[in-house]
Each structure stands twice: as C-alpha cells, then as structure tokens.
C-alpha cells in the first residue's frame, strides 16, 4: 500500500541524511521525498511517499519518530488529505500541433511558461494521477523532458500539523 507521510523535523545540517539513511539501512523504499523550511525557520517540513504492508509502514513511522531530529509526524493516508505535485514539462511543439497542445494544457489547468519555435514548457500542479494523465495525453514522443517535485501533502480539516 502507498502511504504519504508528513514530517516536521529540526532544520539542522544532516537531518535529511538521517531520514534518507534510515530508509536505505532498513531496506524501506522511498518513492518520493520533498523538503523545505517552514515559516518557523528552525523547522523543515517533509512529505515522504513510501510503499509497504501495514507492519512495514508501522515500523517506518516508529523508526522515523525515533530519530531525535523528528519533532512530529503524521501518516496522511490514515485520514482525508490533499496531495499536490508540481511538474515542469518540456514538449515538442511545432506549429501544426500548437493548437492541440494549448487546449490540452487548458483542460488540465496548466500554464505555458516558455515558448520557442519548436517547444513549450508547461507548468502544472495537481495530484500525481492528474500529472500522469497529462503526460499520457500529450503522447510520449512529444515529451522532451519532465521534472516533477514529488507530492506535498496536507490533512483536510481545521487541525494542523504544527508544534503544540
């Protein structure tokens, strides 16, 4: 099962390598990992996507919690949550295809942010599934390059994952 885990972690040198090292040392897989400092500069927020059965994911959350630098952790998959991922995608766009691509971008609520006579760069945010769908829709042979951030996640509702 796929799990998306949100982590508040001390913004210290080496904190990221503790998380990454834990996954490689214990043989857990990381599908994606995003990190950035929060509004409180002493904390970073990570969103980590992993796969495993319930026992493995339980161990993963326990082992993460055990890291001294981890302040708080939430398995977003346990409740309703929102995931968003950002993608930059460079697409072959000769004159003949431009109309079709432009309307696809509109349907997917993306934005064209760079244009040459042979290419577009499209910026798009959405659930990972939506980004997958867009890539499929433009046809593989048209895609020059894809950069994805991996999803960030947040739980629905009024409560926040913050220091209490």
């Amino acid at each position: 099962m796929r799990h998306i885990i949100s982590i508040l972690i001390e913004n210290e040198a080496g904190a990221l390598s503790r998380v990454a090292g834990l996954f490689s040392a214990r043989g857990y897989n990381i599908e994606s990992l995003t990190v950035a400092p929060t509004e409180d500069g002493s904390l970073s927020r990570m969103t980590l996507v992993t796969r495993g059965n319930n026992e493995i994911v339980e161990q993963i959350t326990k082992q993460l919690n055990k890291l001294i630098d981890v302040v708080k952790l939430l398995d977003l998959s346990d409740g309703e949550h929102i995931e968003r991922e950002m993608m930059l995608i460079k697409i072959r766009a000769e004159r003949a295809h431009r109309g079709e691509i432009t309307s696809l971008v509109e349907i997917f609520r993306g934005r064209i942010i760079d244009v040459t006579d042979a290419s577009y760069i499209v910026e798009m945010t959405g659930s990972p599934a939506k980004l997958d769908a867009f890539i499929k829709a433009v046809h593989e042979e048209m895609v020059v390059e894809v950069v994805r951030t991996g999803p960030s996640g947040i739980a629905r509702g009024a409560k926040g994952l913050v220091l209490s």
């Binding site: 040198a13 080496g14 390598s17 040392a25």
Partner: peptide, 14 residues
C-alpha cells in the same frame, strides 16, 4: 565521523 557513525549511534553532533 558524523556520517560514518550515523547508523550506529542514538544520535550524533558536530
């Protein structure tokens, strides 16, 4: 040293 010992300490500091 912090990197080498990371997997075999409770925690480490530089």
């Amino acid at each position: 040293t912090v990197g080498i010992t990371r997997p075999c300490v409770k925690h480490n500091f530089l």
